[in-house]
Amino acid sequence: MLSWVIPLVFAMLCLAMLMNLWSLHTRSGLPDRVLALDTLYINSSALIILFGLWKSTELYFEAALLIALLGFVSTVAVCKYMLRGDIIE
């Protein structure tokens, strides 16, 4: 059962990421694009976790954790830039 469930979830995640890319490309304005990127990084870390399951290894877990960490920090940094026009005051 898992042998077809995991590829199906792969397809769902890829579709979700394509939608994110579409909205990243078509929306105008900084906040909208940052929102699309924010969703994109969460989805990509989901994809990496799923890939780790597929290959049944724990190695990819840390990559997913790092993407989640760096994605959050960069989103907050860009938001700070939007709010102040500067990152380090």
Binding site: L30, P31, V34, S45, I49, E58, F61, A64, L69, L83
Partner: peptide, 30 residues
């Protein structure tokens, strides 16, 4: 249990980043 680490991290950070985004959008008078 290490997958739980990502889950808890996301639970804590997603609202924060959305709040910052909304604040930024209001500031830009979107």
């Amino acid at each position: 249990m290490n997958q739980l680490l990502i889950a808890v991290f996301l639970l804590l950070t997603t609202p924060v980043s959305t709040h910052m985004l909304a604040k930024g959008a209001l500031h830009h008078r979107l």
